[in-house]
Design a protein around this nucleic acid. Structure first.
Lengths: 246, 246
DNA sequence: CCTCCTCGCAACGACTTCGTCACGAAACAC
DNA sequence: GTGTTTCGTGACGAAGTCGTTGCGAGGAGG
């Protein structure tokens, strides 16, 4: 392996794959300010070799690359055992979000559609870092009786595989990734559907209903927060804010 | 309650770049009331020099400027090392949000699309200030027996979750965020309801009543200031309790 | 071509929340 | 004390939100 000549123990190395210098620089600047070492790569062909050598903690991959298709890069990353376990955050324009690439996107550890606020990006980065620092394999996630296998796009409940559609899968994982947090209707519509305005649709509700149905008894893990959105919460877990000192 | 000598310590300097006097003044008023020093600039060309000289903690930048393009201003801010690290919140009309400028917006620390509620703006400002000033409290706030969890949009009283509606939640948090300060009827109506004139309504009173009901014994924390408005005050306390991690 | 499946939408009812009004109580001015 | 203003309270209709159902469009696969 790489005998890390790392400067600080808890500093994370992040690789940015982005051809537009402006955007790359902005992200880089932010990451540096937050204390993360980062490398920018503009050429898609260099990604896999560089990732093998550098072993970054996270790769931020823009799908719109010149020359080689971003999705191709992603596939190659996943194909090589030396890079397969590195979390990837995919950046994509809204117009690119089609069902065709939806499946592949779901294979990433996360993806963001432009326009996104940097806030979002960094929240996701820290979320992933939190996960990876604790657990080694990140493509597996567990929340109570649920266990998610991102690589195979499968979700297990009590060890039994759930038969979810693509949309349902996205919706549920989006909720799960930030459990105990309230997801706004607008947030969910943006993250799952790529909407950007217009919250007045019952589509979200319909899918929530179908999800709850498929989840059976555990369907009540999806809590509706009236006037705001939805929330994923495991029943007996995660005691709320403790106010009294021990 | 106002620490008279603490000006420089926790006061933040915020620069507003906005050509419409109305909006600029509105933002400025709020910021001042929240205890932030602020400067308004109407001309895009003056932004960079002024920022270099003043070194504000945050810049609020409207993209619709006469003369010079707002994005250009933003790029220049990022290009100069003396201003590159200043967080920028971009204001933009919805129609302007295209994929073309999305990338550049992504370089900002946050962006808001008009029309936005002032509440949103100030929440984001405090979020950024919290980050940059490295203040400990992230999404939690405590006032006496109350503890507010912004992430879950939940409010706890003596550790028990309160069942509040959206409006009640907004009203109470608005009062709490500036405790010991008197909130005018007009202020509250504007911040919670978005009203802009017309203070002659009993709506506010009704909601105050419902809030007091739900708060039970602690309902008296909401004090009516006759002829002016309302005020949030914790009974026996003189100074806010320091919340230290166990 | 047909069938099966998924998705998004529209419509409806159940329920909650909101805003307004009327009226009495309380505070204030004189 | 009296008169006036301001606030608290209860009730009620309006408006909003959510859950559910049914249906047509479109895609996948045979």
């Amino acid at each position: 392996m790489i005998p890390s000549a790392a400067f600080a123990e808890d500093m994370s190395k992040i690789m940015i794959v982005e051809d537009e210098a402006d955007i790359a620089e902005m992200i880089s600047m932010h990451l540096t300010r937050e204390g993360h070492e980062n490398i920018t790569i503009g050429n898609g062909l260099q990604v896999v070799p560089a990732a093998i050598e550098q072993q970054p903690d996270i790769i931020i991959l823009d799908l719109m690359l010149p020359g080689i298709d971003g999705l191709n890069v992603f596939k190659r990353l996943r194909a090589d055992t030396r890079t397969a376990s590195i979390p990837v955050i995919i950046l994509t324009a809204k117009s690119q979000v089609t069902d065709k690439i939806a499946g592949l996107e779901s294979g990433a550890d996360d993806y963001l559609t432009k326009p996104f606020s940097p806030r979002e990006l960094f929240l996701r980065i820290s979320a992933i870092l939190r996960r990876t620092k604790k657990v080694v394999l990140i493509s597996e996630m567990r929340r109570g009786p649920f266990s998610l296998d991102r690589r195979n796009l499968k979700l297990f409940l009590h060890g039994q595989p759930l038969d979810l559609t693509t949309t349902e899968f996205k919706l549920l994982t989006t909720l799960m990734e930030n459990d105990d947090a309230v997801h706004t209707r607008a947030d969910l519509l943006r993250e799952v559907w790529g909407y950007n305005g217009d919250v007045a649709t019952r589509t979200l509700d319909t899918h929530v209903k179908r999800l709850r149905e498929k989840l059976g008894e555990e369907g009540k893990c999806i809590i509706t927060v009236r006037g705001t959105g939805f929330q994923f919460k495991i029943d007996g877990e995660a005691a709320p804010v403790e106010t009294s000192a021990p």
